[in-house]
C-alpha cells in the first residue's frame, strides 16, 4: 500500500458516496447511466470472487464487500426506488460492443487459464470501458448536473491515482502487472475530455455544458 493507491481508493469510495447522495437528495437518477452502473456490478462481482479463495488484508476484504454492496444498492435505487426518474431512452450505448471484446481480450490476455483468473482479467478489461455508456449519455445530452460531474471527477481521480501507484510499485517492489497497467491507462485516457471540461468550466463555477 502506498499513498497513491490509498488516496485512489478513497477517491473511489468518495465517488460512490457522491453518487448515492446525488440520487437520494435529488430523489432522481436523472443523468446517470444505468448501463454503466450495471457494468460496475459485473466488474466487482467477477473480480472479487476471490473473496472466498484468497485473503489479502482486512482493508482489502472490507473494501471489496463495500464495492459489491454499494454498487448493488445503486442498481436498486435506480431500478426500484427511483425508477420513474430513470430514462432508458437516452441510455442507448450497446453493451454487447463492450462485453464481447472484453471476453475475447480476457481469453487472450490473462494470468492463468482457470475461471478465477479469466474472470479477473475480464473484470479488468470491462472496468476500463464501463464508463463509456455514462460518457456517451453525457455527450448526447450535452450537459450534466454539477453533482454528477463531481461523481465522475472522483471516479476519474481514482483511476488517475493508480498510475503513480504502479510507477511507485515498479521502483519499490519491482512489481508490474501489465494487464492492469494497460487497461488502467486506457481507462484513465477516457476521462481526459471530461476532465478538460470539468477543470475549465465546473471548477470555475460554470455549468457543465458541452459545445454544440
Amino acid at each position: 500500500m502506498n499513498i497513491f493507491r490509498f488516496f485512489g481508493d478513497l477517491s473511489h469510495l468518495a465517488s460512490i458516496f457522491i453518487l448515492i447522495h446525488k440520487i437520494t437528495t435529488t430523489r432522481s437518477c436523472r443523468g446517470i447511466s444505468f448501463k454503466t452502473q450495471a457494468l460496475y456490478v459485473t466488474v466487482f462481482v467477477t473480480r472479487y470472487l476471490d473473496l472466498f479463495t484468497s485473503y489479502v488484508s482486512l482493508y482489502n476484504t472490507v473494501m471489496k464487500i463495500f464495492f459489491i454492496a454499494s454498487s448493488c444498492y445503486i442498481l436498486y435505487l435506480m431500478r426500484v426506488r427511483y425508477r420513474p426518474t430513470n430514462d432508458p431512452s437516452i441510455d442507448t450505448f450497446r453493451l454487447e460492443y463492450l462485453v464481447g471484446p472484453c471476453v475475447v481480450l480476457a481469453l487472450i490476455f490473462n494470468y492463468g487459464y482457470n475461471p478465477t483468473e479469466l474472470l479477473w482479467s475480464f473484470s479488468i478489461f470491462l472496468e476500463s470501458v464501463a464508463i463509456l455508456p455514462q460518457l456517451f449519455m453525457l455527450q448526447r445530452t450535452g450537459e450534466a448536473e454539477t453533482i454528477t460531474t463531481h461523481y465522475l471527477a472522483a471516479l476519474g481521480a481514482y483511476r488517475a491515482l493508480y498510475i503513480p501507484n504502479w510507477i511507485y510499485r515498479y521502483f519499490s517492489e519491482g512489481y508490474v502487472d501489465p494487464i492492469s497497467v494497460t487497461a488502467g491507462l486506457v481507462q484513465t485516457g477516457l476521462y481526459l475530455d471530461f476532465f478538460y471540461v470539468y477543470f475549465t468550466k465546473v471548477l470555475q463555477g460554470q455549468k457543465f455544458e458541452l459545445p454544440a
Binding site: 481508493d9 484468497s54 488484508s57 473494501m63 471489496k64 464495492f67 494470468y111
Partner: peptide
C-alpha cells in the same frame, strides 16, 4: 506454476 501476479489491488 503459479500466478505471476498476486492480485492485491482493488
Amino acid at each position: 506454476e503459479g500466478n505471476p501476479v498476486h492480485h492485491d489491488e482493488l
